[in-house]
Each structure stands twice: as structure tokens, then as C-alpha cells.
Amino acid sequence: MHPAPFAYKAAHSVEEALELLRSHEDAKILAGGQSLIPALKLRLTQPAMLIDISKISSLRGIRRENGKLIIGSGTTHREIEKSSLVAEASPLLASLAPQIGDVQVRHRGTFGGSLAHADPAGDWPAAALAVDAELVIAGAHGTRTVHASDFFTGMLSTVINADELLTEIRVPGEGTPGIYLKHRNAASGYATVGVAVTATHNHGRIGTVSIAVTGATPVAFRASAAEHALTGHAVSAHLLDEAASHAADGLECLSDIHAPAAYRAQLVKVMVRRALGKLLHA
């Protein structure tokens, strides 16, 4: 397969990337390329220019500051998977990373690229929502920070403007227990449904719970009603059953040849229940 022709520039700083974005119409950012390059090959997208940000070292890396994990947008899935810092500070991210694609894809694909692509079957959007990540977006007039809950605007769309770049993602780093469960599409490896759940409990009582779901609907979402039904209550199997059984209420699920909407709704309920069970031991 052969992409349509495009120009290519490698940026070596965020400023240079932004300048290139501003000065070229119909330019696209190339990060890890694991979604973009297949789309180019199938000519589903035909940009005039690619701006390669993979050589910008400041976009890469994982550190902890003030109790938060700061992850550069160009950090690969594999780097997150192998990070002992992430394992300690964000069990949810550590649980999710090795479930993305395959090793080769994780070597190239990036955290920021996945979030900015906002594929409805992507994995990271669920985690970003569940931990209420803060996404730092750079533009001509400096940076702005957007909460994950405001970041995804629809299928394959986010609040990032055409002349902006996602540079950094900040997530809570207190080691809150979390888990990502994924029902893989047997062909693509993408999430038919993926659920990202964090939960704390103390002496048999649930503290905070967050539940986010990807794959089921055009854009990942937080299952707020289920969270609300759980928060502050005593842990019991019945409570978890009840909360999970409503996790798909009112959803208009996606439907395809692999999974009709009703099946996705079922998976949401089952997987939310199983994730809660693993975290709350009930």
C-alpha cells in the first residue's frame, strides 16, 4: 500500500512544531504513527505535510511532581508499561499499557498520540477519564490545561485545535488501586469494550470510585451513576452487582459485525462488575 505524496518535516522543539503547524495548511502531526501510517497507506487520509514530533526530547519522559505523574505526550506505551514509577504511582495506567495492541505497536505508539487520535476503540481515553487526567495543550499563545472530561468531543475528535499540540498529561500519582479490563476484537486487537476502574476502600467501606468505558460508544465516557451508587457505601457483592447492572443504562452503543450494540452493553455491565470485584474483593 502506498500513501499519497506528502511533505515531511521533523520538528526538534515544541516551538518549531507549532510554527510548522501555523505555516502549513493541511499538516498533520506524526507521533508514533501507529494509527496514522496505516490510514495514510489506505489513503483514508491524505495530508499535505507530516510534522514529525517524535524527535522532540522534551515531549518524552515520565516524572513525578507534587504527587502527580507527569507523562510527556511522546512517551511510548512501552515506556509506560515498563516504568516502575508508573507501576507504583498509577496501577490503572500500568494495568492498561501492556494491553494495547502488541509489543511492536507499543514500541512506537505514544500516550499523547492515542489520546489526541480519540479512537472510539482506543484504550487510553478510558484511563484518562477514569483518573481525570489533565492534558496540557501548547499553542501560539502559550499552554492551556484541559481536564479529560472536557477533552474528548466526539468520535476521533478532541478540543485540540489545528494549530495546537498536546504536550503533557498529568495524572494523580498516589497509587490509587486501579485496573483496566479489555475485551479485545479478535482481529484488530482494539477494544470492543474496555473498562478502566479505580477504587479505594477502607474497613469494608468504599471510598472513591471512578469508572470509565471505551469502545462501547462513539466517545469514551464516565459511568457516573454507577460511581455514585457505590461511593461511600459498604462493600458487598450485591451492591457491586446492582451498580454494574446499571452501568449501561441509557447507552447508545456502537454496533458492528463483531459486536452488536446489545452485546457491547452486556460487556460494559459484566466488565464493570468484574473490575469492581477485583479491586474491592467482592
Partner: peptide, 15 residues
Amino acid sequence: GQSVKSCMVLAVQAD
């Protein structure tokens, strides 16, 4: 040092 699918990498990226 990292395995990749060379159909999902541009030659220019391997510069």
C-alpha cells in the same frame, strides 16, 4: 533496539 513493524514506520523516521 526495539522491535517495530516496518510497514508502520516511514523510512525518513529511521534517519
